[in-house]
Structure formats: structure tokens, C-alpha cells
Nucleic acid binder design. Structure first.
Length: 426
RNA sequence: GGAGAGGUGGUCGAGUGGUCGAAGGCGCCGGUCUCGAAAACCGGAGUGGGUUCGCGCCCACCGAGGGUUCGAAUCCCUCCCUCUCCGCCA
């Protein structure tokens, strides 16, 4: 959520900034609502003041043993007037709120303008895609050779966009997650957190998935309004919801390995083959809660934490700065890390690292108190994949495949694979 | 599933219709003392919002939402949550 004060005081420059990301803010509507709000709020508060004053007088008169009848008469229909005024005010405020919570974050000045992924700007590349002297198999074929990766089975058990992994591939998947967690906790200073995979509406509102993007979520049946998490960003970031953190404790660095559930509504027909786009996938997520003065340093740092995983796994990748049109709802700036996929002869997203600035913090009322500061201020929140485990698995299979279909385990990963150097096809 | 207890400020905790935004403790900030610190003592400070150039003034907030009343932390209703015991269970 944007700062409502900014939205009120300077809707024109807010609109200009939003226009960069293709969002048309109805400035006239904001102005009209704001004028009405001001009028109604002033009136309501005046009436409340009057009621309070009169009631106090009655109380005092009563305690002195005086007759309160004349005072009661003076109250008249104050209550009715107040009622209608506050009702109208609540309505206008709700309208304003509905508009405000649906507005995406303002892009940072350093974010390139653009419409879609075509306009993203490459920052740098790492590694060189391998030259293969045999016909490259994609991960679906590699995994399918001996039933280590079975999509048909998953379709029977559940439906489309699910996978069953078995044997060495299941182990490789597990090893990757463990490796990533250890890297983030032992080398990059994150605290490992185990979180619920089911969250409530408030949490999803806090990180920005609700109210606008409910279609992308799996909602559970039952009395409670519960949802499966689309990413560990939700439970991790909501740790600081409604909290005032001691400034000395910042930055908070937290990581979690969780499954992620996405309905992928609107993605029909895209990436239907293989495990690029699944309803359920594992991810190691990084979240930082930082002092606003340091959030862009933290963003660069987190990008490095994600890159370190790919480097250790010897997977070529590139980093792009998302353009204004391609950024997520709550992000002020986002880097995507895209891993090389030989079968597709292109780079595919494997991590997304974003600075949300105070966008989520304002929705969550996540604040901190700086040393010696009287007033709490909003924190900045950041999140990034470190990394998507499923996509990492398929990237590893494809990039490190051999002519016979076996897969070389990168050296850095072997300790998590019990020393296994190569996954043979039986 | 059954029975009970409870949700109050950064935190703990008092408060059952009228200057209660709320005692007290802890923690925090400032001061005195000290070479410095600790202790002790004195003082200060809730959060959000409106309005004003500003001092300030005003409004809301005691889990959430309704209701009763001139007036609600306090009474009534609905809901949510937490804890304890029993049952069941990984």
C-alpha cells in the first residue's frame, strides 16, 4: 500500500510514477473522495467532541447532586446527526481504502521503463552454456528414462501440473533444498525458520496477494478462511506483522524451505511439459526486514545470495532488472535470475529478488524503533528465492547431463548426496 | 469433541457505568550523583488520525464487530483468538 498521505497530497506525481508501470490512477476520483473525506471527517469529529463535552457535563452535574434533566434535553438529536455523519464517513473511507489497496507499488527511479519481459535489462551473465556433442534431452526425457520423474503418475494421483519424483531424482531434489538452506544459514547469515504452509487472510493481505490476486491461490474448504501458501514469503514476512521491532535487531534475515502452491490460473497452455510450472513446488525463500536506509544494499546482497547457489552448482545464468511493466504488484525493484536451459536454448527464471520498500510494511503495520527514536517507523521488507528447488533440479539435470542420460552431480552438492558423483540411468 | 479460564499500552499487570488514555512493576529516554558506569533518586514518554505555518486543539483506539446509554475498558449480543484440564490422535 502506498502512503495515503502522499496519495492525498500529491496524486499527480503518484499518477506519473504509476503510469511508468502501466497503471492508470484516476486522479480526479482521488481528489473528489479526498475532499469529501475531509469535510465528513471534520464534521464527525466536531459532533463527537460536542457529545463528549455534554456527557462530561452531565457526569459532573450528577456527582454534585444537581438536576440533570435540562442537560439531557440539550443533547437533543445529536446522536442521530453523529450517526449519519460517521456512516457517510465510513463509506468514503472504505472507498478510499479500496482504491488505495489496489494500487501497486511505485517503481524505484533506477527501474527501467517498459511494457513486459521484452524490456527487461540484462545486468550480467555468469558461466558459459555447455557445447553438447550429442543430442540434448530435456529433463522430462532424462527423468522419464527410468521413471525417476513421472508426470502421468502424478496426473493419476492428483491432476495436471504435478510431478512424482523417485529414487535418485527425489534424493537430488532433497539434497538441493538442504544444500540451499545450509548455504543461506551457514554462509549468508540467515536464520532458518520452519513455518506453517497454511495462512490466513490477514497474512495474504499483508504481503499483497489479497485482495487482488486471490485467483492465483488455493483456498481450503472449511470454516476457516485458510489458504495454501504460494511462497514462504508470506509466512516469513508476516512474522513482523503488527510488531514494533527493536531497531538494534535489524536487519532480520530469515530463510525457509517450503512447498509453494499456485493455481496458475491464467497460465493455461504455458509450460505444460515438464516441471517448469507446477501447482506445487519447493522453494528456499530468503526474507529480510531492514532499516529503510539500507534496503537497496540488502537487495544487492540478496541477489548475491541467490547467485551464489547457481555458481556453486555450476549452472550458467544471467541477471535481469525487471522493467516497470514486468514487476510484481508490491515490488519497487526486482532482479530476476534466469538459469540456462539447454533444451529450450534460453534462460528461464529461477529466482526473483525484490525490494518491497515499505509497501508490505504499511499493510502489515510492521515497524521498528530506532535507537533513541520516539516514533516507530515502517521497516522495509525484501524477499527472494534462494532458489526455486524444482526449477533448479531440472536445470541441473539438463546442464549436467551426459550422452548416456546420466547426470553428473556438481562437486559442491556431493556432500548432500552422500558422495554420489553421478546419477546413472541404472 | 467435552469442561473451564482469559484477551488492557514496548512488556507484565490493575481496573465492573461518569475528568480512565487508563494505577503499578519492568523495560525505554532525559537529568542528579559518579572519573565513568551500576545502584539510588527526580522527571518524561502510548498508537493511529484530523486540523493548524507552528505552539496547540480535536477525534479514535482496552481482541473484532454490533447493541444499550446523555456517557462503555466496564453492561448485553455475535464472532475470532489464546491458555488449562479431559477425550481422541501423528
Amino acid at each position: 500500500m502506498l502512503d495515503p498521505k502522499l496519495l492525498r497530497s500529491d496524486p499527480d506525481s503518484v499518477a506519473a510514477s504509476l503510469a511508468r508501470r502501466g497503471y492508470a490512477l484516476d486522479v480526479d476520483q482521488v481528489r473528489t473522495l479526498e475532499a469529501r473525506r475531509r469535510e465528513l471527517q471534520t464534521r464527525t469529529e466536531e459532533l463527537q467532541n460536542e457529545r463528549n463535552t455534554r456527557s462530561k457535563e452531565i457526569g459532573q452535574a450528577k456527582s454534585r447532586g444537581e438536576d440533570i434533566e435540562p442537560l439531557l434535553a440539550r443533547v437533543g438529536n445529536l446522536g442521530d446527526e453523529l450517526d449519519s455523519a460517521s456512516r457517510e464517513l465510513a463509506q468514503v473511507q472504505a472507498e478510499f481504502e479500496a482504491i488505495a489497496t489496489a494500487i501497486p507499488n511505485l517503481p524505484h527511479d533506477s527501474v527501467p521503463s517498459g511494457q513486459d519481459e521484452e524490456d527487461n535489462v540484462e545486468l550480467h551473465r555468469w558461466g558459459t552454456p555447455r557445447e553438447f556433442d550429442f543430442t540434448v534431452r530435456d529433463h522430462t526425457d532424462l527423468g522419464g528414462m527410468h521413471g525417476y520423474l513421472d508426470f502421468e503418475l502424478a496426473t493419476k494421483i492428483t491432476g495436471s501440473r504435478f510431478a512424482v519424483m523417485r529414487g535418485p531424482i527425489a534424493r537430488l531434489h532433497r539434497a538441493l533444498a538442504q544444500f540451499m538452506l545450509d548455504k543461506q544459514t551457514l554462509e549468508h547469515g540467515y536464520e532458518e525458520v520452519a513455518v506453517p504452509y497454511i495462512v490466513n487472510r490477514d497474512s495474504l493481505f499483508g504481503t499483497g496477494q489479497l485482495p487482488k490476486f486471490g485467483d492465483d491461490l488455493f483456498r481450503l474448504e472449511g470454516d476457516q478462511e485458510y489458504y495454501l501458501i504460494p511462497t514462504a514469503e508470506v509466512p516469513l514476512t508476516n512474522i513482523v506483522r503488527d510488531e514494533i521491532v527493536d531497531g538494534a535487531q535489524l536487519p532480520l534475515r530469515m530463510t525457509a524451505h517450503t512447498p509453494c502452491y499456485r493455481s496458475e490460473a491464467g497460465a493455461y497452455g504455458r509450460d505444460t511439459r515438464g516441471m517448469i510450472r507446477q501447482h506445487q513446488f519447493d522453494k528456499v525463500e530468503m526474507v529480510q526486514v531492514v532499516d529503510p536506509g539500507h534496503s537497496y544494499e540488502a537487495l544487492e546482497e540478496m541477489r548475491g545470495h541467490a547467485e551464489a547457489i547457481l555458481q556453486a552448482l555450476e549452472l550458467p545464468y544471467r541477471v535481469v532488472t525487471l522493467c516497470t511493466g514486468d514487476m510484481g504488484f508490491g515490488a519497487a525493484k526486482t532482479y530476476d535470475i534466469e538459469v540456462w536451459l539447454p533444451s529450450q536454448n534460453t534462460f528461464r527464471e529461477i529466482s526473483s529478488v525484490s525490494n518491497m520498500e515499505d509497501f508490505q510494511a504499511r499493510r502489515m503495520h510492521a515497524r521498528f524503533r530506532a535507537q533513541g527514536q520516539k516514533k516507530p517507523s515502517l521497516v522495509h521488507t525484501l524477499n527472494g528465492s534462494g532458489l526455486a528447488v524444482g526449477r533448479c533440479l531440472l536445470a541441473l539435470m539438463e546442464n549436467h547431463q551426459q550422452a548416456d542420460g546420466s547426470i553428473t552431480v556438481p562437486e559442491a552438492l556431493r556432500p548432500w548426496m552422500g558422495g554420489v558423483e553421478r546419477i546413472n540411468q541404472k
